[in-house]
Amino acid sequence: MTKYDNVFNSQKTLAESLTPEEAVAAIAVVTAIADASIEEVDPEGLAGILWEFEVFEEYSEDEMIEIVDKLIYIAESQGLSPLFNTANESLPEDLVLDGFAAGVVALLDEEELIVPQNKQPFLKRLQTALDLEDEEADEIVKEIIAAFQAGENEADFDDEDDTITVEDYLEDVYESPLGNFTVSIPVDPTQGGKIQTQEGVVGFSDDFGTLLRIDYYPIPPEQLEELESEGQEEYLKNIVVDKYVPQAIFTNVSDAQIKYSEYLEDIFAGAYYALVDMPKGSTMSQQGNNGTATRLDAYRGLLAFINGEFLYIVSNQRSFLYGEIPNDIAEEAEYIKDNILSFVETMEFS
């Protein structure tokens, strides 16, 4: 008897039937138990992950927990194979991918964002049992991992962020902790407006995909010398192209590319502007067919300039819904640049 035969090498089924939704959840339950034990399964945690699937959008959290508890009891009393076989038989064709996705989330290492090597044999047998092609299965795994990455990087900030709603801030103007600038708050509390801060950064976002962000740094003496020797245009270009974009964007969005750049002589005695194409790099996500949220494509505009003793990089994101085709890159660059400049006009420096 080989490993996982207790799941896949029997024709037994349950006496009772499963609903299509229960069938999807059952695959997650079987998968979670197959490489561990029933005692190690966290019903509430598993229910919480499954609740994000579109197929369960009509269910409450409590109802999801009840479903998972019921399925765990069936697995314990009647066995994994009858539960899996009944789930497989109960899956309509349009939910087979959801069933496989449910298995993937039950196997995923949420810290490493991979399916561990020792669990991949089970995933392969699950794929075979559900009659999925390699390409289909690989795409689901990629979507699940991207969805978890989206959850981790949604705010584009670190875990230590101070995040408050605009309504709780009680002011129309945000003031930098260093006292170097104030800026009008550009998001609305009725649209889920939030202010997210950490040292040297403030971001403004809402539930509709708005993202305006200000990074600000006191310029150290050694960089002042670099600025003087290189000239402002070259200095700002190097900051954006060689330092900021690789560290803030490329590390999170591997396929990102700078698509447009220009030097603006008349802005703050010289400013450098760049547009970055970020495939699946938006802070905004859209629900997919398999119940997973996938990050949208986006363009991010960046404007770097110097005011007083500080370097500023002000950015704005434009996200594209599935099927939405961007305009010509020059038009998009101009549109986002105008948004940034309008925002910068509300800043007051001291």
Rank of each mutant, 00 (worst) to 15 (best):
D42Q: 14
E52C: 15
V96E: 10
E139V: 05
E112V: 11
D138A: 10
E93N: 03
L123E: 08
F122E: 02
P116L: 06
V55G: 08
E133L: 08
E58F: 10
T31W: 09
I38M: 07
S77K: 15
L123F: 13
A129T: 02
V41G: 08
E112T: 13
G79Y: 09
L107G: 03
S81I: 00
A101T: 07
Q78W: 02
K119E: 01
V115D: 03
F122C: 06
E66V: 01
D138Y: 00
V96D: 08
I27A: 04
Q78G: 08
I114K: 08
N118V: 00
F56Y: 11
D109F: 12
L50R: 06
A28C: 04
R125H: 10
E89S: 12
L46S: 05
D35G: 13
E44Q: 14
A32E: 11
D42P: 12
L113S: 02
A106Q: 01
A75P: 02
I67A: 03
D134R: 14
R125Y: 04
A32G: 02
D35K: 12
I33S: 03
L91A: 01
L132T: 02
V96P: 11
A34Y: 13
E139D: 11
A137V: 09
D134K: 15
D94T: 09
D98F: 11
V29Y: 04
D109C: 12
D35N: 15
L95C: 05
S37C: 10
E139I: 05
G45Q: 01
W51G: 00
F122D: 06
F53W: 05
A36Q: 11
E111I: 15
N118M: 03
E139M: 04
N118R: 08
A137D: 00
D69R: 14
M64N: 00
I114H: 03
E40Y: 12
E66S: 13
D134T: 12
E111M: 14
S60H: 11
L130R: 06
I65T: 12
E135H: 09
S77L: 14
N88R: 15
D69K: 13
L108H: 04
F84V: 04
L97V: 03
E139L: 09
E58R: 13
W51E: 01
V55A: 15
E89Q: 14
V55L: 12
I33Y: 07
D94L: 12
A34W: 12
E39W: 15
E133H: 01
I72V: 08
V68A: 05
P82C: 14
D138P: 01
Q127W: 11
L113D: 02
E112R: 15
A87K: 06
A101Q: 07
V29W: 10
A101W: 10
D42H: 14
A47L: 04
A32T: 10
E39G: 15
D134L: 12
S90G: 10
E136V: 02
R125D: 00
D138E: 03
E44Y: 13
N88A: 09
I67C: 09
E139W: 02
W51L: 10
I33K: 05
V29P: 07
I33F: 06
Q117K: 14
A101Y: 00
L71W: 05
E139T: 07
L107P: 06
E52L: 12
G103K: 03
E93P: 07
I72K: 07
I72D: 07
R125A: 00
E57H: 05
S77E: 15
I65H: 06
K124D: 03
L123Y: 12
D94V: 09
